[in-house]
């Protein structure tokens, strides 16, 4: 990696100030960023670590009953502490990477990076969560804008994610055998007023909602309800590990399995 300065602010305000420096780059766990730096594919002049900010740590419930997870909260903490209130989300966190990754990586980092094969964005989108930043609150439907693209402005920090807790939910993941990221994974969340289905790993546009499935499942929450529904393979990622058509097929299979797990 190239040389850079490191700042470790202890408040959101200080972090925002530090990110105002030229070529500054936030780091919230570094599970993507550090390998990128080691490969010399990025050259920030200053890394601003978001891991020392107490107000971005931990999990609580707000007065609307939402599960509020600080942006700097480790996957391992979510896996443990969200298990009682939101087991599907905790289960997702428990299966990200390996123990080393889960004890360095954070929810804020994952959501802000919006890797098209990351796990968390599917939970955020399927839950209809709200992404809180230092400046504003952004609905999940408005947050994810495509592969590695989000609504975040330069220097804006994900400080918290607020998850409405569904009646029931399930995350079904089919792994890419080398990276063990999702080749296709589907998060199905059933709320009183409908079902939300979010798909990660599959699309060239990153995480997306499968609205046809949502409509079918909202009227009949049964795996059979999406029999015959398909997603178009043409916009799907096609690579060494599977064609777009294969990924499109897996979207259906994973969705059915997620629903079956809840039936």
């Amino acid at each position: 990696m190239y040389n850079f300065d490191v700042e470790k602010p202890t408040s959101i305000a200080d972090a925002v100030a530090a990110l105002g420096r030229e070529e500054a780059q936030p780091m919230s766990g570094g599970q993507t960023l550090i390998p990128t730096l080691k490969a010399r594919l990025a050259m920030p002049s200053v890394l601003v670590s978001l891991r020392g900010i107490d107000e971005m740590q931990g999990i609580c419930t707000d007065d609307q009953g939402r599960l509020c997870i600080g942006g700097g909260t480790l996957h391992a903490v979510v896996a443990k502490e969200a298990a009682a209130q939101y087991p599907a989300l905790a289960g997702l966190a428990a299966r990200i990477g390996d123990p080393a990754v889960r004890n360095r990586g954070t929810i804020g980092g994952s959501v802000a990076n919006n890797d098209p094969s990351a796990c968390y964005p599917s939970a955020v989108l399927a839950s209809g969560a709200t992404v809180v930043t230092n400046a504003r609150e952004i609905a999940a439907d408005d947050f994810f804008e495509g592969m590695f693209a989000t609504a975040l402005e330069e220097g804006e920090i994900v400080t918290e994610v607020k998850f409405p807790i569904p009646e029931k939910a399930h995350y079904e993941k089919f792994i890419q055998p080398a990276s063990r990221f999702p080749l296709v994974a589907v998060f199905v969340a059933k709320f009183g007023d409908g079902v939300r289905v979010a798909v990660t790993g599959a699309s060239e546009d990153g995480v997306f909602r499968w609205t046809d499935a949502e409509a079918a499942l909202s009227s009949n929450f049964d795996a059979g309800a999406i029999e015959g529904l398909t997603v178009d393979g043409s916009g799907m990622i096609s690579d060494l590990h599977g064609s777009g058509d294969y990924r499109a097929h897996l979207v259906g299979v994973m969705t059915k399995r997620a629903v079956a797990a809840l039936s």
């Binding site: 089919f174 055998p177 080749l183 590990h241 599977g242 064609s243 294969y246 097929h249």
Partner: peptide
């Protein structure tokens, strides 16, 4: 014999 290849062969 990856999942993608098996699926493609079976279909």
């Amino acid at each position: 014999v990856t999942p993608a290849r098996v699926w493609a062969a079976m279909n």
